[in-house]
């Protein structure tokens, strides 16, 4: 188990380093940084001065080393636009994005797992078909469009919820629903498929042959095995929700990290964009690692050898 954990961590670390190199390179490949920093009206001399001032004349490897060692300590430089250190700006916005991502994930799981179980118990019944229809829509509809539909219905027509902005829990309802609706179909189909496979397995027949109550068979023996693949997907979906919230936060003007990223892209605020990409990617890596460990915990075939 410890060896397994060590191996997985090592892989995660390698991925993180690769991601950091890519996000560093992205910036330097997108044109002459010094020129865009100095502005469109700058003279050749100004550009050279800026290049010197920001250390952009040094070899790339040195620049990367310098940048990475600072990044590890949370120093992502200064925002070009806000003229403030990048890291505190992002940290400030993080609670909004985390609340949105976590509540969307919980909402999606709470709806899709029971729905998936019912669909698996009664395949091809009306409830199974309804669930399938809902999930097809969820998968097919662009989430920004679904968000706009929600705004029209609940924000403008019914006036139940605030249309946009950042504030109390009411402001999170529609974004969370939008985000949840996007990941729900995958969870539901996975639960359904997993449950159907497990329910047809020999050990479920054994459990029934022991005379166990149907609830014990369903929840202790079936669900436990059926959710194992769901765990990995849920963790990845949370990573997706955190990264994918760029669009949702923009639609609902929810001032989280995603919104900051969107703003920064439109203002060409490279250090902020770079930091957000790196942080979200690392978060994603950590979540995947966490999912692997959770999987190992749930599946003794991985945990005990």
């Amino acid at each position: 188990m410890f060896i397994y954990f060590l191996k997985r961590s090592l892989v995660a670390l390698l991925v993180a380093i690769t991601v950091s190199i890519i996000s560093f390179m992205l910036l330097h490949l997108s044109g002459d940084l010094a020129q865009s920093l100095a502005g469109p009206t700058a003279s050749e001399a100004d550009i050279i001065q800026v290049r010197k001032a920001y250390g952009l004349d040094r070899p790339l490897v040195v620049q990367y080393g310098d940048w990475a060692s600072k990044a590890i300590r949370g120093d992502f430089g200064e925002s070009f636009f806000l003229k403030q250190p990048v890291f505190p700006i992002i940290v400030d916005r993080f609670p909004v994005t985390i609340s949105l991502g976590v509540s969307a994930l919980l909402l999606a799981l709470l709806v899709s797992i029971p729905l998936g179980i019912v669909a698996a118990l009664r395949p091809n019944s009306w409830i199974d078909r309804l669930a399938l229809t809902i999930s097809v829509f969820g998968q097919a509809m662009p989430s920004f469009w679904f968000g706009l539909l929600l705004i029209m219905l609940f924000g403008i027509n019914l006036r139940w919820l605030p249309v946009s902005g950042t504030g109390g829990w009411q402001y999170y309802v529609m974004p969370a629903v939008t985000l949840a609706y996007y990941s729900m179909p995958a969870f539901m189909r996975l639960t359904r498929a997993g449950m159907m496979e497990v329910l047809a397995s020999d050990y479920i027949r054994t459990a029934r042959a022991k005379g166990l109550r149907s609830m014990t068979v369903l929840f202790k023996h079936a669900l436990r095995n059926a959710v194992i693949p769901l765990v990995a997907v849920a963790a990845v979906q949370l990573g997706f929700a955190l990264g994918g919230s760029v669009v949702i936060e923009a639609v609902f003007s929810l001032h989280g990290v995603g919104y900051l990223g969107w703003e920064s892209i439109s203002r060409a605020d490279f250090p902020v964009v770079q930091a957000i990409v790196l942080i979200l990617a690392c978060l994603y890596i950590v979540l995947t690692l966490f999912a692997d460990l959770l999987n190992a915990f749930l599946d003794p075939r991985i945990r005990v050898n």
């Binding site: 020999d202 050990y203 027949r205 054994t206 042959a209 023996h221 436990r224 095995n225 003794p300």
Partner: peptide
């Protein structure tokens, strides 16, 4: 049952 390999719950 016939299949001892799959008749016990792996979890």
């Amino acid at each position: 049952f016939q299949e001892p390999m799959t008749s016990l719950n792996p979890a």
